[in-house]
Amino acid sequence: MAITGVGLFGFIIAHLLGNLLVFAGPAALNEYAKKLHDLGPLLWVARLGLLGMVGLHIWSAIKLTAANKQAREVPYKSDVLPVDGHRRDDIAVKFAARTMIFSGLIIVAFAFYHLAHYTWKVPQINGIHDDFETYYVQADMVTSANFTEGEQGKNPVDVYRMVVTGFKVPWVTGFYVISVALLCIHLSHGLSAMLQTLGIKNKNTEKWVDKGAVIFATLLFLGYISIPLSIIFEFVKLK
C-alpha cells in the first residue's frame, strides 16, 4: 500500500509539473509532449510500471478493506459520544481516512475517462465530438497544421490545442475539478499514513507530517485545477 503509494505520489507530482507547462505557451507544452513521445520504448516501460503500480495499489486496497471489514463482523450500535465531548474528533475516524477506498475507486473511474479523453482520443466522450487525433502542429511547435496535413507518428501532436479545446467544455472541467479534489482528499490522509507505515513518522515530526500532508494535498489541488479553470475563464486560450 505504502510502497505503491509512494510511486503513485511521484507520478502525481511529475504529471503536475509537466501539465503546468501549459502556462508557458504552446511551444513549451508541445515540445515537452514530443520529448515524452520520442522516448519510445522507455515511455512504455514507464507506462507499464505505472499501470503495475496502480494495479497493485488497487489490489492491496481491496484486500485491505475486505480484511479490515472482516475483523469486525458485528458493528457497534451506538455513536461515539465520549464523556470528554471535545475528544470526539480524535476518537471518531476522520472523513478522508474513512473514505479512502471510495475516493480511490472514483479516481480510477476518472483516470479511465481522462485516458480515453486525451490518450486514446475517443471523440465521442470529449463533449464536442472533435477528433483530437487530427490535432497536429507544424515544426515550429506553435502553428497548428490543417487537419488533413497531419499524419500520425510524423507530425508532432498539438497537445496545447487539445488541452485548451478539451477543457472549454464546462462539464469536462467540472468532472476534472471534482476528481482532483477527491485525489487530494485521498492524499491528505494517504501522505501521512504512508510515512507512518514506512516507519518514518515519529513524535517530533508527527504534527509537521499531518499538517504537511494537508498543505501538500491542497497545493496539488490548486496546481491541478489552475489549468482547466484558466482555460474556462480564458486566461489561457488558443493563440
Binding site: L64, R87, D90, V93, A97, A193, Q196, L198, G199, K203
Partner: peptide, 26 residues
C-alpha cells in the same frame, strides 16, 4: 485488522500509548 493510521486507538488508550510505537513496529 490492519492499521490505516486513523489514530482512534491512541485517543482511547487508557495508558496513552503513542501512535509512534506503530511506526517503530513497522
Amino acid at each position: 485488522g490492519s492499521c490505516t493510521v486513523t489514530g482512534s486507538c491512541e485517543a482511547v488508550c487508557p495508558k496513552e500509548i503513542s501512535l509512534d510505537f506503530i511506526a517503530r513496529m513497522n
